[in-house]
Each structure stands twice: as structure tokens, then as C-alpha cells.
Design a protein around this nucleic acid. Structure first.
Lengths: 166, 166
DNA sequence: CGCGTTTGGTTGATGCGTCAACCCGACCTA
DNA sequence: TAGGTCGGGTTGACGCATCAACCAAACGCG
């Protein structure tokens, strides 16, 4: 990690580790989301929204709060919430005049209560128990460092506020 | 990691580590694929295909070889290759009668040559140099173990060969 | 030979994610 | 009061991923 480190390219070992990592994530993500979809009829996106709503005190949030929590773009949020409303998982209520609040429905609550334990168990079985607590904690820390690096890079690569995105 | 370990749920620390991890991947993946898309006009999927083709000796592969290498479903492969052909990155040639071979075009070669160094450099900057070699290697090993666990789970959860998918 | 099954691949419908454009109320500021 | 412009949100178009259905050559074997 010296000044310029090793130049831009990845050497054999690094390349190997990176590719192992990519394969792992692809495999794991596919498996988890398949499980969610087939056993409970929820996509990972549905799950993410429902987790956030169900963990809030009131079970209702503004769309932009959900956006802050999930880091989704607002248009993705809007589209997805519309679809979830159509399926009865949430509803939009225009309570305090102006913008609607997003409320989790009884059906949405049932859905997340039904799938959360199984999902957590799967994560435990496939990841936590495989790696053990020490490595798990190490990975958490490593992850935080990478997030910091990416955020910093985002600032330098699109410096002013021209970016509603990057 | 004893017989039943700690029950299905994740405890605070585990939950924390897992969520850090999820956030990291979401952030990193978004950043990398955005970079690829905006600087070079390639999606991560395009990149994956072009890497495989350009690393093969001949620059030409059958679709199912690409499928084995990428783990994509065949229909995704077919759709994506059609789109890439339309954009001139690859072409399908019906050489040995029957199924077509996928050939990387000159334009495709130029595209991957143009973006690969920058992409590798970004991975180095945001991941490899942040974590250092030791942790990087540890993560590679951890990833392999998780892949093994997922594969094993796939076999037990859909035991016979009813699964063209899971 | 004739009939099934497997293998490699395509197609169409549908849902999702992104981008760019737009809408509208609120808040300035002249 | 008129004119920004800013924030929260919606819309439409388009590319991508998945699923189920289909197609055709090759194989297997009666």
C-alpha cells in the first residue's frame, strides 16, 4: 500500500482472489434471491423495502426516507413502490397533504414475518457458520473500509454537485 | 459453529457485519459498473463476455462454453449475445455447420483493451490497496468456502435433476 | 428403420433498473 | 406579486434478466 503500490494491474494472486470473490457473490446472491422468490414470492428488492418499513416504529415512511436507507434512485423507488402497491404489500396514503406516506399492509407484514427467519437462517448456514465469528467481524470491518474508499473516490471523480447519481 | 450453532437468527454483531457487507457490495458494484458504462459504454455483462472471449486462445467460443464460464442461463446468454452482435462487439459465425460460434470483433477487442486497465486499476485502488494482500488472500479463501457451502446446499435443497436452474 | 430423449439454442412475455424529462408545491428574492 | 429554482415525486422509453415454451439436430435403442 505504498505511495503508488504496484501499478494498475492485478497480479496473479490478487486476480485470483478477486475472481473468487466475484464468483462467490454471484453464486450466493443468486441462491439467496432465488430462495426468497420461490419460497415466499418476494424479490430481494421487495425484501429490502419490507425490512425497512417493518423495522420503523410506525410501519410508515416517506419515500425519500426509504431512499436514504436503501440508496436507491428515486425513480427506481417510485416504480418499485407502485408495483408493490399493486401486489398489496404496501399502500400509499396521502396523510399530511402533499406527498404520500408509504405504509406496510397487513399482507406485507405477514410476508416479511414469514420469510425473515428462513432468510436469516440461510445466511447463517451459508455464510456466518462457514466463516465463523472472527472472519465475519473482519469482513464487516473490511467492508466499511471499502465503502469509505468508494465514497471518497466518488467525490474526487465527480467533484462538484453535478451528480444526482455517481 | 457447533452442531446447531446459535439458532437461525443472526445476533447483533453478525447482523452488523452482514449489513456492512451488503452495503459494501452494493456501493462497490454500482460504482464499478457505472464507471465501465460511462467511460467505455460497456455494461458489466458486456465486460464479462469480452473478458472470456479475449482470454481464449482463438477469440472464438461456443455459446455454451461462455455459459459454463459465466454461469449464465442460456436464454440470458442468447439475448445478450444478440444485443452485443447488434452493437458490433461480437459476431456469430456458422462455421462448423449447426451451432454458431461467437467471435469477438475488432471493435470488441478495442473496447476491452481500452477499458481493462482502467477497470483493474479501479479495483486495485478501491479494494486491493485498501485491504492489503493478506486480507485479500483471506477473502479469496473465504469466498471459495462459501461457494462450496452454497453448492452443497443446492444439491440438498433440490436433490434430483429437476433443476435446470437452482 | 422409426420413435423418444437429450442437447444447444432461440423466442416472447413480463418484471425490473436506469435515464431523461417532467410536474408541482415551497421557498426565495426583486 | 411575479419570477426563479429547488426538492420530492411521477412518467415513459429502453435495455436487461428470467421464465416457459419452443425448435431442430444428434443420439439411443427397440
Amino acid at each position: 500500500m505504498g505511495a503508488v503500490a504496484k501499478g494498475p494491474w492485478l497480479d496473479e494472486d490478487e486476480q485470483q482472489a478477486w475472481r473468487s470473490y466475484l464468483l462467490m457473490w454471484k453464486t450466493l446472491e443468486a441462491h439467496l434471491s432465488r430462495h426468497l422468490q420461490r419460497e415466499f414470492g418476494l424479490s430481494s428488492s421487495d425484501f429490502e423495502i419490507l425490512v425497512n418499513l417493518s423495522e420503523s416504529e410506525t410501519g410508515r415512511m416517506r419515500a425519500y426516507e426509504l431512499g436514504a436507507a436503501t440508496q436507491w434512485e428515486k425513480s427506481r423507488m417510485s416504480h418499485h413502490l407502485s408495483r408493490m402497491e399493486k401486489r398489496g404489500l404496501i399502500s400509499k396514503v396521502a396523510c399530511d397533504a402533499r406527498y404520500p406516506e408509504i405504509v406496510i399492509t397487513e399482507q406485507g407484514l405477514e410476508a416479511i414475518r414469514a420469510c425473515a427467519p428462513a432468510h436469516a437462517a440461510l445466511v447463517r448456514e451459508l455464510v456466518v457458520d462457514v466463516l465463523g465469528d472472527d472472519r465475519m467481524i473482519g469482513i464487516g470491518e473490511a467492508a466499511d473500509e471499502v465503502v469509505t474508499a468508494v465514497r471518497k473516490h466518488q467525490e474526487t471523480c465527480c467533484p462538484p454537485e453535478v451528480r444526482g447519481d455517481c
